[in-house]
Write a protein that binds this DNA or RNA. Sequence first.
DNA 1: TATACCATACTACCATACAAGTCAAGCTAC
DNA 2: GTAGCTTGACTTGTATGGTAGTATGGTATA
Lengths: 229, 229
Amino acid sequence: MTGEKTEQISLQPMRTSVVDQLYAALRAAIIDNDLNPGARISEAEVAQRYGISRQPVREAFISLANEGLLEVRPQRGTFVAKISLPAVMDARFVREAVEADIVKLLAQAPDMALVADLRGQLVRQQDIVGGSARDFMDADEIFHRTLAEGAGKGNAWRVVVEMKAQMDRVRFLSSMHFPVARLIDQHRAVVDAIAEGDPARAESAMRVHLQGILTDLPVIKQERPEYFL
Amino acid sequence: MTGEKTEQISLQPMRTSVVDQLYAALRAAIIDNDLNPGARISEAEVAQRYGISRQPVREAFISLANEGLLEVRPQRGTFVAKISLPAVMDARFVREAVEADIVKLLAQAPDMALVADLRGQLVRQQDIVGGSARDFMDADEIFHRTLAEGAGKGNAWRVVVEMKAQMDRVRFLSSMHFPVARLIDQHRAVVDAIAEGDPARAESAMRVHLQGILTDLPVIKQERPEYFL
DNA sequence: TATACCATACTACCATACAAGTCAAGCTAC
DNA sequence: GTAGCTTGACTTGTATGGTAGTATGGTATA
């Protein structure tokens, strides 16, 4: 369907494989809610839209389904996964557990070079305060990744990324005005606790930060029940 | 390669998809070290062995590569992933963080029916003491999954499963004589702390339990350096 | 009018064919 | 003898064809 507009979105000429490019494009589209939860998205349709064959599309679908972003029902169709409240809450739970332990680790042996880097990021985050939600989300992701890599847990970050995908998808539904200033304050609290070598306070600050992220989830579910399972 | 013995391993006649069956079979083979780290494993070869076409094999490979169990190098070949020490240690780190929070949650609101279930499992674990490593690993997995599901974190368990795969692969290399009796004692300590509603002790017991799992990893790496990255 | 049935147009699944990159053995030129 | 090229046998990546299962809408029947 959408049989008229064959707008032939073009992919880069093979710097990386077609599958990888398509995977990234679809993943971003789903998280940004450019593709709405529950939307149908068949292999053939996507293949035609991107001017490629069905096989790479299918392979991109597999990875997205494994991440819980697509649901493929054999012989029936493939759909953007509806948002499951338990799944999102569990993703937040996992992320909190992992990042709490990461900052605990950092505070046990404070690295002042890392702290300086983080403080620099805080300043740059302040500059975004009036800016776009997208820009802040990017800065936020860099901040959290810096913590993980600073603790030498780069592989653990991969898990957080997967959990974050579930969470971000919901956040992008919530009309985009999260309290940037407060979030930055929470970031600062984490950094300060690390700098002072106070693991308990660092952990607590991170938990508070991550627990506050999905507070308006019930509201969103009431506003858009059709997006939820 | 292995051109003679085409022993045609047969898959079930389509109760579930060919891809899913093959995925499970290969995953088990890798974790059990039936397929050694670094071993070559081409799409065509596996397809022939199972009497199916290359496409389903390829799709199973994608999922296994996403889990870090295979490494596919374009135009070069596909290999069982060598064991990366940082990756394994980070997997343990993530698992500890998640399961520590799970038992903390359970101890905050002890469910005596769950405790009874767990105590029953402890008894059954005792019966295995002289038995096979495989049997104990299965019982161990059930125990940990019961904790996760008891805390209402069934989705979080999916993450643990992925981390466990990395860890179990190493454990199966270590000549199989882990101290079963001690591990059961540690399980009991967790259950007791939950029953008594002591979150701090439950957390601590779980962390001790999981930290003790990979102690002989350096020994294994010395014994079989060719399996490591 | 309500319901069982059936043709048809989808879907994802699997098989097969072709394309393109990689690597190593062996030949050629020097 | 050796460096460098050619060639061919691999590999995974992509395209296309055919199959079986599913939903849907129209039609005949009670």
